[in-house]
Amino acid sequence: MGSLAGDEFAPRTTYLNTASAGLGPARAASAIQRAVQGWPIGDFSAYDLALTAARASFARIAGVPVERVAAGSSVSVYAGLIAAGLPAGSEVLVAEGDFSSLVNPFAVRADLKLRTVPLENVADEIGAGTALVAVSSVQSADGRIADLDAIRTAAAACGTRVLIDATQSAGWLPLRAGDFDYVVCAAFKWLLSPRGVCFLAIGESTAAELPPAFAGWLAGEDPWLSCYGPVADLAASARRFDHSPAYLSYIGAAESLALIEETGIETIRAHNVALADRFAAGLASLGYEPVETGGSAIVSVPGLGGAAEELERAGIQASARAGNLRASFHLYNSAQDVHRILDALPAHRP
């Protein structure tokens, strides 16, 4: 099984670490280089075009109208914005061990009731008193996939808002952002974008609940008429929740997201999961027991996190997370990469 990437990528190692950061396609790097060359001479013509293209591309990937997508820089900022909109005393339900950027903005509000439960129990623990459930669609530490259908159904029955962090899934797992109140996604992993690109897809009925606390001039309906003093006319679309974009990053993102669209999410998913399954089977033959994920592109082995440094010395990049050895597979990986990491791991000795 070869890669899907063609000539877009040229890793110098066996790169199995997309769950930490995705590799940038050559076309994205070239676009950023052109923009950097234009910077000293005052050519900023690509900036707004790239932001518009990246937003539209993410909207198509997420399956929502572009008018419902805000563009920013980080998950924690958007989670913090949602946290700021909750009344004092609200209960927020999160999964044990979920990523801090999603959880901490709610934890630091002392007047919220943060309740933590195992991932597999999230849907069952949603009750009439739960104002918001916030969960990653795929867990960073070990690649487990949340049962989003069950969470959505339970939340709807209780009138609970749902925030999904799709950072570890968008780009390889189909996304139906319209099923949820909020979907936030940092694009520097599976969407292959530079750091500093993050999107928020917001439900039509929930937009009015959010305070546009970070709205600057660019969040105005006409930004050039919103430069001074209070913004009199905020954008009617989710653009009112934009915060000032890192334009060079968005120039790269526009190209990276286009590549994801051209390749196709279902094609990428089939490729990634086949490689992950092959790796999991090889681990079992060596005596290891990877975390059961239910068809994830991420494979984690409990207690083997210490092997990451040895693998790096062998030219294989994986990562250590929560004591696990975590390997993640994307469109630039191939079956040969699976063989390399398996050959580098010793047989397990209980």
Rank of each mutant, 00 (worst) to 15 (best):
A238H: 04
A71Y: 00
D43S: 02
S100V: 14
A62F: 06
L112E: 11
V197C: 13
L119V: 06
A131S: 10
T206H: 12
P40W: 11
R109H: 06
P105I: 06
E312F: 15
V273H: 05
R176G: 00
S20Q: 13
D142N: 08
S57C: 04
A281W: 13
V291G: 03
A213C: 12
E91N: 10
E289I: 14
Q168H: 07
N272R: 11
D111L: 10
Y288H: 10
G287Q: 11
I260A: 02
E125M: 14
I32S: 03
P118C: 05
S137N: 04
A71T: 09
G42V: 13
W224D: 09
A54F: 00
E292K: 13
P174R: 02
F279L: 13
Y228I: 15
N104M: 14
T263A: 08
N272M: 02
E255I: 12
G216R: 08
A254L: 07
A150Q: 11
I151G: 01
C158K: 14
T167E: 01
A297I: 02
R152I: 04
L225A: 13
R68F: 07
L218W: 07
A29D: 10
A5G: 13
H330C: 01
S101G: 12
E309M: 09
S74C: 12
G80K: 13
A320W: 01
N17D: 05
C185P: 00
S74N: 12
R176I: 08
S285A: 15
P223W: 07
A270V: 09
G303R: 15
L345R: 00
R27L: 15
D149M: 10
A155P: 06
P118W: 08
A276C: 05
L283Y: 13
C227E: 13
S237Y: 08
E292D: 10
L148P: 03
A308E: 11
A59W: 03
L112A: 07
I61K: 01
G42E: 04
Y78L: 09
Y332I: 11
S74V: 06
A344G: 01
A95Q: 05
L132R: 09
W224I: 14
P40Y: 12
D43T: 04
A35L: 01
D111K: 09
H243C: 03
G85W: 09
Q168F: 11
A297H: 06
A19R: 08
A35F: 08
A88L: 12
A150T: 02
A10T: 15
A29L: 15
G6S: 02
A62Y: 05
V94F: 13
S296Y: 04
A276V: 08
S169W: 02
I202W: 06
E91D: 08
G178Y: 07
G63P: 00
V77T: 12
A10Q: 14
S73N: 09
Y247L: 02
A21G: 00
S3K: 13
V64M: 02
T130C: 03
Q37H: 15
G143R: 05
A320R: 13
D222I: 14
R55P: 00
A236N: 11
A110G: 09
R144Y: 05
A347W: 14
R313M: 06
A154Q: 09
R240N: 05
I32Y: 05
